[in-house]
Design a protein around this nucleic acid. Structure first.
Length: 491
RNA sequence: GGGCCAUUAGCUCAGCUGGUAGAGCACCUGACUUUUAAUCAGGGUGUCGGAGGUUCGACUCCUCCAUGGCUCACCA
């Protein structure tokens, strides 16, 4: 207590004094032996039955309001399930217990035993017979009807945010339901859930800067994973035909409304499937989950009405043509592509391929306009180092990304399983790395070795779960869907 | 990292062209035996984000710094 003295304000001193007084009076402020008979919502829902049997209920929760009327007193008690009003009468509980009750502070946890009645205004209320402090609260809670608004405090002290802002709790319950729904859907389809390493000797499976760490006993540097992809594909080589993993990826990059350094993804791989099968799966998966969580396939996000009943599919070249009028179908030289970029004010001087320029057009101009669910297919091979080439046009890959509300939700492709082509693609990436692109993919010899044993043709999918949760909960910042988002350390 | 904005009581916020800090909630004291944003009477609990500067005088003007938000760049 002494070391905390400096940041104690008047309100906290007051509460510590109360705590000391309780202890002096021999009252335990942190009781541990209270057993509930009902949750608060169970009490409210079974009012008729419980009163008919004149049954005592034992409930526990946090005191969120106190209304002292002299010789009687009301309080609001809140648990996870809901809120109920308490009523204590001096003549019924006795002077000593009554004054303990009125001495409670907002924020205290108590357990109470009592019977139910209905007040004159029709509110179901528990008449207290016995009560016990379960945890004395030593800090004042934020204001009761504006809640806690300061976003920095909300994220740093998420526990307070959760206490006073009910919507926040709803968001994280929805997040849990979404992830639970995904698991249920995939298990139904006989996918095997696996866990692959978080610490990688080579950070692969995505274009990103990794966090570095060090293993002392092995005296070797390791990278926190930027994607589980290459490990999951090794499992296809091993004979698992349908696998998925839900977990964290870490990327050492900037923070934004859409980016947290650690984020959660679903990746799944299915042998003997291709990207079109995966497209069907993606659509069905998201519809299923949305229906679970929202009971509705029409959602509003960022003032956009989004209809999850209708999903568009178009190639990247078509999408660029539709939104910019620039048709790359017959563009065959890099010079031509560069001059088109220049006409459209896109900086493409360092780009070394037509594919990268098409991708630039798409990312810069088209992406944000894709509000309704849209699968963009046929990505240029240069920006898709792990995807299989299209058999009719090898400059493009059998890949899609899903966009909803202008955000990328999913990335998927027919997996490249030709070890020689894969090795060449890694070598191209290595050249880019040497040319200064420190986000280019790294060569992974063991992964090539695995492919050389033979990986069955397969479709793979990655979904950014944080972004999916944002979409389905109407959250405009990724920090709203991550319980403890990354912030600069305090002090 | 660049640009813009914000930072005043535990919380939500006022505070005018520079004159020495306020409200509501919360908290404490008292009244009140069915209230529910309970009410009534009293009590202000503050390094005005930090450090400099200008000024007789700074919450207010200037500079720098810190933290956060939005945004741009990079990325999912």
């Amino acid at each position: 207590m002494a070391e905390q003295e400096t940041d104690l304000n008047e309100l906290m001193i007051e509460r510590r004094k109360k705590l000391d007084d309780l202890k002096k009076a021999g009252i335990e402020p942190y009781n541990n032996d209270f057993v509930r008979s009902h949750s608060i919502t169970e009490v409210l829902d079974n009012f008729d039955k419980l009163t008919a049997e004149e049954k005592k209920v034992k409930i526990a929760g946090r005191v969120m309001a106190l209304r002292d009327h002299g010789k009687s007193s009301f309080a609001d008690l809140v648990d996870l399930s809901g809120k109920v009003q308490l009523y204590a009468k001096k003549g019924e509980v006795g002077e000593e217990k009554y004054s303990l009750f009125t001495d409670l502070n907002i924020g205290d946890h108590i357990g109470i035993e009592g019977t139910l009645f209905e007040t004159g205004r029709g509110e179901i209320t528990v008449r207290i017979q016995e009560f016990k402090l379960l945890a004395k609260s030593l800090r004042p809670l934020p204001e009761k009807w504006h809640g806690l608004k300061d976003v920095e405090l909300r994220y740093r002290q998420r526990y307070v945010d959760l206490i006073v802002n009910p919507d926040v709790k709803e968001t994280f319950i929805a997040r849990s339901k979404i992830i639970h729904g995904i698991r249920g859907y995939l298990e139904e389809k006989n996918f095997l859930e696996v866990q692959t390493p978080l610490m990688h000797p080579i950070a692969g499976g995505a274009a990103a800067k990794p966090f570095t760490t060090h293993h002392n006993a092995l005296d070797t540097d390791l990278y926190l994973r930027i994607a589980p992809e290459l490990y999951l594909k090794r499992l296809l080589v091993g004979g698992f035909e349908k696998v998925f993993e839900i977990g964290k990826n870490m990327r050492n990059e900037g923070l934004s409304r859409k980016h947290n350094p650690e984020f959660t993804t679903l990746e799944l791989y299915q042998a003997y499937a291709d990207y079109e099968d995966i497209m069907d799966t993606t659509e069905e998966l998201i519809k299923t989950v949305a229906e679970d969580v929202l009971d509705d396939l029409e959602i509003t996000y960022n003032d956009h009405k989004i209809d999850l009943n209708s999903w568009n599919r178009m190639t990247m070249v078509e999408a660029v043509n539709n939104h910019t009028g620039v048709d790359f179908t017959n563009v065959s030289t890099l010079e031509e592509a560069k001059s088109l970029a220049e006409e459209n004010n896109l900086e493409c001087e360092e780009k070394v391929s037509i594919g990268e320029i098409i991708n630039e057009f798409f990312e810069e101009i088209v992406e944000e306009k894709l509000i309704q669910p849209t699968f963009i297919t046929q990505y240029p091979v240069e920006v898709s180092p792990l995807a299989k080439r299209n058999s009719d046009n090898p400059a493009f890959t059998d890949r899609f990304e899903l966009f909803i509300a202008g955000n990328e939700i999913a990335n998927a492709f027919s997996e490249l399983n030709d070890p020689i082509d894969q090795k060449e693609r890694f070598e191209k990436q290595m050249e880019q790395r040497e040319a200064g692109d420190d986000e280019a993919h790294r060569m992974d010899q063991d992964f090539i070795r695995a492919l050389e044993y033979g990986m069955p043709p397969a479709g793979g999918l990655g979904i950014g779960l944080d972004r999916l949760v944002m979409l389905l909960t109407g959250s405009e910042s990724i920090k709203e869907v991550i319980l403890f988002p990354h912030l600069r350390p305090e002090n």
